[in-house]
Amino acid sequence: MADKAGKIINRQLFTENQVLRQVLGICSSLAVTNTMSNSLVMGLGLSFVTALSSMTLSAMRSIIPHRVRMLAQTLVIAVYVILVDLFLKAFLPEISKTLGPYVGLIITNCIIMGRAEAYAQKNPPLPALIDGFFSGLGYTGVLLMVALIREVLGFGTVFGMNVNFAGFETWTIMLMPPAAFFIIGSFIWLLGARAAKKAAKTAK
């Protein structure tokens, strides 16, 4: 019952986006979206961990006893998170410092556990890899959208490059926590409203 790759990709990037439709992995998507570069690094890190842990768990799914699978999943995820953490510390120490505890918190990101439970559990390794990777990319996409709004309005920059025009006063509130809540809330609202409209149309 392996799904087609295209179908998985479409589902994970758009129709069942983990952040906006399933409301998973919210903590980090709120916390790191004050700049684009933080969001990109975080998103790629998460995609890497989700993809590889899904693949590993899917490959091991017949040998892990059902009762201890949560523990096994956490351990596998933690191993990959440690890899990401060490990589960031070695090659991107600046970003690693600003992300702070949020890199370690990838372990408790519900997206990864969610994919492991909902998909990798019942599917062969390759589709699980694709599924994990693109659910990570869907998350990255949302992060980048939120970060774009916050960074342009808050700092007047995109990836640190100045896009500020004369007479534009930056909005400090955009860098503060409330803005993150408002922006993600509005995204979820827009998607929810669209889904509701679609459902109403098909019902007719």
């Binding site: 409301v23 509130i173 503060m176 926590p177 409330p178 803005a179 993150a180 809540f181 408002f182 993600i184 809330g185 509005s186 979820i188 609202w189 827009l190 998607l191 929810g192 409203a193 669209r194 889904a195 509701a196 409209k197």
Partner: peptide
């Protein structure tokens, strides 16, 4: 509430306002 807003979306907005108050 407006369509699609009840539940999660409105919780986010409320939390945002709370965060602003706590600022």
């Amino acid at each position: 509430l407006p369509a699609g807003m009840s539940g999660t979306a409105v919780s986010f907005i409320i939390t945002g306002i709370m965060a602003m108050a706590f600022m």
